[in-house]
Design a protein around this nucleic acid. Structure first.
Lengths: 145, 145
DNA sequence: TCCATATAGTTAACAATGATAACTAAAACA
DNA sequence: TGTTTTAGTTATCATTGTTAACTATATGGA
């Protein structure tokens, strides 16, 4: 097999099965990746709006609206009218915190399997590079506005 | 914002905009990510079948069939009957090689922008970690068979 | 040699998740 | 006050993954 540059293709080749298997893990708890991500960022931010979550996740509003709708239906999230009457503040319910902690256990175990032979320092370096790439991506998209 | 473990979320948070912007670049040439990936692996392997490409890319056969169909329609790929009559060997046409090289230029430039502040060694370390994770993913999925 | 099984490829249908467009209601600004 | 911006919703579409069911060919064991 020929070669020239491989970083992009390696990234894609790693990410896809990662996503597939992450979804397998999450399906044990009845959630998909996007629902898990949104729930995660809701817990992390504690009192965010849809727009804030969309911004953090780098996706458009309607995606969050759809996912949020399902999380609310499942009873994991509640909305609270903000004092700005356009806003809906989103809070994770007790039930939501419960499933969040359950899933966290599953996901942590999965993550540990994937990082079995990746030392602590190597993990940090990896995250660090990811963040650089992420920053460069957002710089690029800023510039094209 | 709270924190516990971040690697997975960082990966997702980086990959998604990466894919979006990669698609933006590829759209200049009228292709999508999957078409580009398949074309790439066809060029790298030189004389593969759909099944071989599917295995390399870690996706199911119908995905490749669909993508291949579009690449053939666009005149970038041709099929050749293998001596095993079930097989179709796939070859990249001259036109396919042309667009491949054009896109490579675009994609290389894009990649360079994303890796602007990532040194050569850091890039290698990053790929190395990606490959470890990829290997652990495929070990996991082997075990669940 | 013949039958059972495996493999290559296709088609159809569905699910998840991204995007854009068009809209309402509220807020902010000039 | 009137214009513009912002938060959120709904509808719709595109891409890309999956599984199921099928045909045709090859292979391997009784």
């Amino acid at each position: 097999m020929k070669k020239y540059r491989t970083l992009f293709h390696e990234l894609i080749l790693t990410y896809r099965p990662f996503e597939t298997q992450l979804n397998e893990q999450l399906s044990k708890h009845g959630l998909h990746r996007t629902q898990w991500s949104v729930l995660y960022y809701l817990v992390m931010t504690e009192f965010a709006t849809s727009v804030e979550i969309a911004r953090i996740m780098g996706v458009e509003k309607p995606n969050i609206a759809r996912t949020m709708k399902s999380l609310i239906e499942m009873g994991y999230v509640d909305t609270i009218q903000g004092q700005d009457k356009r806003e809906k503040r989103l809070v994770v319910t007790d039930k939501g915190m419960e499933i969040f902690n359950e899933i966290r256990t599953t996901v942590d175990a999965f993550e540990q399997q994937l990082l079995l032979d990746v030392g602590e320092e190597e993990q940090l370096a990896f995250i660090h590079t990811l963040q650089k790439i992420k920053r460069n991506l957002s710089t690029r998209s800023e510039e094209n506005k």
